[in-house]
Computed example of a mutant assay.
Amino acid sequence: MLHTKIIDTEKAKIQISNAEKFIASSKFGASIFFTGTVRDFNENKKVTGMTYDSHDAMVIKSFKEIYEETEQKLNIKDKAVYIEHVKGYVKLGEMSIIIAVACKHRDQAYVLSRYIIEEIKKRSPIWKKEHYENEDSKWLKGNPINNEKI
């Protein structure tokens, strides 16, 4: 069970309640909610906000591919996954992504959630532009946490 969506920040915001409803099921014993938010400092610069851009169709395709490969790579068959990412300007502290997962067991939920965010960072065509206090801005390079296999 999978839900994926790109949210245009001029029209809507990510709602955790939508993710909660989607993954709710008595057949799952564990749920994990990961949210990414815009933080106020990066590389010794005061950040005032972030603009995200994406190739929407390719992003959704990558989300689906990541979901589909988890059965074989992680051996997690029964699961619910909800992924939404924003496109547009996001203020400090606001969510840019939510990944909600539900599985039978907690270890599966932790592994699945971590795998999904790491693969999105590596593979999904999403770009971010930081805006700084001095009114400068900069498009950032992709930056996965590490190259370890999960």
Rank of each mutant, 00 (worst) to 15 (best):
I7R: 10
T4S: 15
K121G: 09
I6G: 07
E43W: 00
L112F: 05
T70F: 04
E130C: 05
I7M: 05
E71T: 14
R106F: 11
G142C: 00
K104D: 09
K27L: 13
K128E: 07
E133C: 06
T4F: 08
V90L: 09
H105E: 14
V59M: 02
T35G: 01
M50H: 02
E133R: 04
I83T: 10
H85D: 10
K61R: 14
V111F: 01
I116K: 06
T70R: 02
A19Q: 07
K27G: 08
T51N: 09
K128Q: 05
S137R: 01
D8Q: 15
E94G: 12
E71K: 15
I16S: 14
N146P: 00
S25A: 08
P125H: 01
K73N: 14
K13R: 15
D8W: 05
E130P: 02
S26V: 01
K64D: 09
I150T: 13
E133I: 08
Q72N: 13
E84K: 10
E68C: 03
T51R: 08
I117L: 08
Y132T: 05
E133L: 12
A100M: 10
A57Q: 14
D8F: 10
V101P: 07
H3E: 11
K128M: 03
K129F: 01
K64Y: 00
E43V: 00
I120T: 05
N143L: 04
K11E: 15
S25Y: 02
L92W: 06
K45M: 04
L92P: 11
S54Y: 01
Y110F: 15
K64E: 13
W139C: 02
K79F: 05
V81L: 11
E119Y: 03
F22C: 00
A12Q: 14
L2E: 10
D78H: 13
K128H: 07
P125E: 05
K27M: 12
